[in-house]
Amino acid sequence: MSELIWSIARALVGVVAVILFLSLNVLFLTWLERKVIARIHVRYGPNRAGPFGLLQPIADMLKLLTKEDIVPEKADRLVFNLAPVMAFLFALLPAVTIGIGSGLIAADLPAGVLYIAAVSSLSTIAILMAAWGSNNKYSLLGGMRTAAQSLSYEIPLVLSMLGIVAIVGSLSTQDIVEAQSSAWFGIIPKWFIFYQPLAFIVFLSAVVAEMGRIPFDLPESESELVAGFHTEYSGMKFAMFMFAEYIHFVVGSALLVTLFLGGWYLPVISPLAENLGVLKYLVQVAIFVAKMYVIIFFLMWVRGTLTRTKVNDMLGFGWKGLLPLALLNVVVTGVVLTLR
């Protein structure tokens, strides 16, 4: 009995820690994104609330909380109100199996990577709920685009992870990072980005499409669809959609770091930090978060630089470009692993 209570307590602590980590990062990200994009546009960005405008996210939150909560008259009320909650919950689910340090993971599932692929496909349902429930043509068009986009990019996403899984021989994210934690000559890390460069490119493109960011932000391209599936949402519900979107951003970057960039391992520094005792975990988290923000900055840079693609180009790129590349990568990895 006490064993059961212990495991429930551990799960609770893990979930609370995941939510805290994500919330802090999301709050910081909303500020960082506006600031980085502003600098790329040669503007200042938010600089009134607090030093460097750092308190801007809190001001935004307060504003959204006090806004009127509007439900369109012809909306399907049940579906309309349920959709933001579902979007938020489904966004949280994949984060549970991503560790930010060795053992610092809410649930180290044996089927980790497969689990992430499965639950990240759920958020399409929430978006279609929002699209249909709003009873608005722009919402519906945006929702249809999202569904088409996430269905077609999920296939190369999953296939590009297969090569790594085959090399490691395990689906657990902890094992995948462990497999990368050594270096040639003590300097060049054995990260999977060097073993699987093709998979890295495919995964990066597919994960950007899954997040729905520029150049693949067709679901909410404001010049044609107002705001896509969340056109009719205001106040707290809109905030939940934004929150879910940024959680996708954080989780996607964290997954990229875990799979291809060695997670919390950095050559030279990590071996030194091994004999620091408890401080070791602090170093691991710092390395992981630093790598995550490199990816996040890169994606913001992409957003500030590129333009939006057309729908047919984007779907064509997914099916005719990424899918054959991902399949080729699987075949080549399989042949090399068998011959070795």
Binding site: P110, A111, A117, A118, S121, L122, I125, L128, W132, A147
Partner: peptide, 22 residues
């Protein structure tokens, strides 16, 4: 049967349900 559970979510909830919504 954790493998089947994950496959169930991946294929049904992520794929078939979205198809039906479509």
């Amino acid at each position: 049967a954790e493998f089947l559970a994950v496959i169930q979510v991946l294929v049904y909830a992520g794929g078939v349900v979205v198809l039906f919504l479509f």
